[in-house]
Amino acid sequence: MGLADSRSWWQRLRPYVLAFDAPLTLIIGALLSVGLITLYSAGIAIPGKVWDQLRNIAAAVLVMWLVANIPPQTMMRLAVPAYALGVALLVAVALFGVIKGGSRRWLYIGTQIQPSELMKIAMPLMLAWFFQREQGHLRWQSYVIAAVLLAVPAWLIGRQPDLGTAMLVTMAGASVIFLGGLSWKALGALFAVGAAGLPVLWTFMHDYQRDRVLTLIDPYHDPLGKGFHIIQSMIAIGSGGVSGKGWTNGTQAHLEFIPERTTDFIFAVFSEEFGLLGNLVLLVLYLLLIWRGMAIAMNAPTLFTRLLAGAVTMIYFTYAFVNMGMVSGIIPVVGVPLPFMSYGGTALMTLGLGGGILMSVQRHR
């Protein structure tokens, strides 16, 4: 009888059951716990929010575990089909999508889906596959092709309009292009071209997008209208002081001054109740998340896995930076949740998928 045949069922299943990376699991678990505590307070007048989020977490953890057991070689084979499917669904949204609140972002195929969420992962997968394929003979034409691969879905998402998701997809793809070997000089030139093109971009922006930029510059020009929500959010953050008002004692949230307090603006609720000290703890957790992701990327054995892990880590960074920045009033308001804390199933599934990719890269070194 061979060695494999003599092993117990637990010995055979153990590598698959224990697929999670311990440091990454602890960090994500801590963020999810903080999120549930904050969500309970933010949604105290909305029955069922915490239980719904627990179901979302269970689904995200299951996705994370499944993906952690998929070898990176299999992910590389899925890169092109996933990208092609994502672009095809985005085109279908543009043609036949469901309109909600003035935006055409959803597609009904028996159930309602938002294809732009798929591109948050499919885009870095595709570009990581492309640079792995081009490894050893990269030329300037390679970066042009990569930029086109990135621009097509970013443009389709931006015209829905969904500026927040378009920005996340662009950041995920741009991080792969940069980590793939783009020089600092070329990056600086691209930033200069982008800055010079801002006046042109302004002419193509929707009215509500221009209003958000103007509100960022001076939220008090319309304090009871367009600037009301961001002003109340900044009041909540400032009123928390050093130690906060205490759990469930936040007045801005419970008196319903904070908009979307269980989703995009949950950071304002957390800041009011836990203050500066709580924010420092939260920042440390996010820094640990970024550190662990970059450590996995640096130790990855192939260019594909390094680029993919680096891109997922940059997605986490962008989520956290943009959300905290918009809630604090330092960047325009866009629809980006706070990772592993905001209420919602779709974003949490995407984040769980990203965590599974990092664990797969670490596990299959």
Rank of each mutant, 00 (worst) to 15 (best):
Met1Trp: 03
Ala4Ser: 13
Asp5Ser: 13
Asp5Glu: 13
Asp5Phe: 09
Asp5Met: 08
Arg7Tyr: 05
Trp9Phe: 14
Arg12Ser: 14
Arg12Met: 07
Pro15Ala: 12
Tyr16Gly: 09
Leu24Cys: 09
Ile28Val: 15
Gly29Ser: 14
Ala30Glu: 03
Leu31His: 06
Leu31Pro: 01
Leu32Lys: 11
Val34Asp: 00
Tyr40Ser: 10
Gln53Ile: 00
Leu54Ile: 13
Val61Pro: 06
Met64Pro: 12
Ala68Asp: 08
Ala68Phe: 05
Ile70Gln: 01
Pro72Arg: 00
Pro72Thr: 05
Met76Tyr: 11
Arg77Val: 10
Leu78Lys: 06
Val80Phe: 12
Val80Thr: 14
Ala84Cys: 13
Gly86Leu: 01
Ala88Asn: 10
Ala88Lys: 11
Ala88Tyr: 12
Leu89Asp: 11
Leu90Gly: 04
Leu90Arg: 05
Val91Asn: 11
Ala92Tyr: 15
Phe96Leu: 14
Ile99Tyr: 02
Leu107Gly: 14
Ile109Trp: 07
Ile113Tyr: 06
Gln114Ser: 13
Ile121Tyr: 02
Met123His: 01
Met123Glu: 10
Trp129Gln: 02
Phe130Ile: 03
Arg133Phe: 07
Glu134Ser: 09
Gly136Trp: 03
Gln141Asn: 01
Ala146Met: 06
Ala147Cys: 05
Val148Arg: 13
Leu150Ala: 10
Leu156Glu: 02
Ile157Ala: 05
Gly158Ala: 13
Gly164Asp: 05
Gly164Gln: 13
Val169Trp: 00
Thr170Trp: 02
Ala174Cys: 08
Val176Pro: 02
Ser183Cys: 09
Lys185Glu: 13
Leu187Glu: 07
Ala192Glu: 07
Gly194Tyr: 00
Ala196Leu: 15
Leu198Pro: 00
Leu198Arg: 07
Leu201Ala: 14
Met205Glu: 08
Asp207Cys: 00
Val213His: 03
Leu216Ile: 09
Ile217Gln: 12
Pro219Met: 05
Pro219Lys: 13
Asp222Ala: 04
Asp222Tyr: 01
Lys226Cys: 01
Gly227Gln: 04
Gly227Met: 09
Phe228Cys: 04
Ile231Met: 02
Gln232Asn: 11
Met234Val: 11
Ile235Trp: 10
Ala236Lys: 03
Ala236Arg: 01
Ile237Ser: 03
Gly240Val: 03
Gly241Leu: 01
Val242Ala: 04
Gly246Ile: 02
Asn249Glu: 08
Glu260Ala: 10
Ala268Ser: 14
Glu273Thr: 08
Phe274Lys: 09
Gly275Val: 09
Gly278Leu: 08
Leu283Phe: 15
Leu285Cys: 14
Ile290Gly: 04
Ile296Met: 08
Thr302Lys: 10
Arg306Tyr: 02
Leu307Arg: 00
Val312Asn: 02
Val312Ile: 13
Val322Met: 15
Gly329Ser: 07
Gly329Thr: 10
Ile331Asp: 03
Ile331Thr: 15
Pro332Ser: 08
Val333Ile: 14
Val336Gln: 12
Pro337Cys: 12
Pro337Trp: 12
Gly345Ala: 14
Gly345Arg: 14
Leu348Phe: 11
Gly354Gln: 10
Met359Pro: 06
Ser360Asp: 10
Gln362Gly: 04
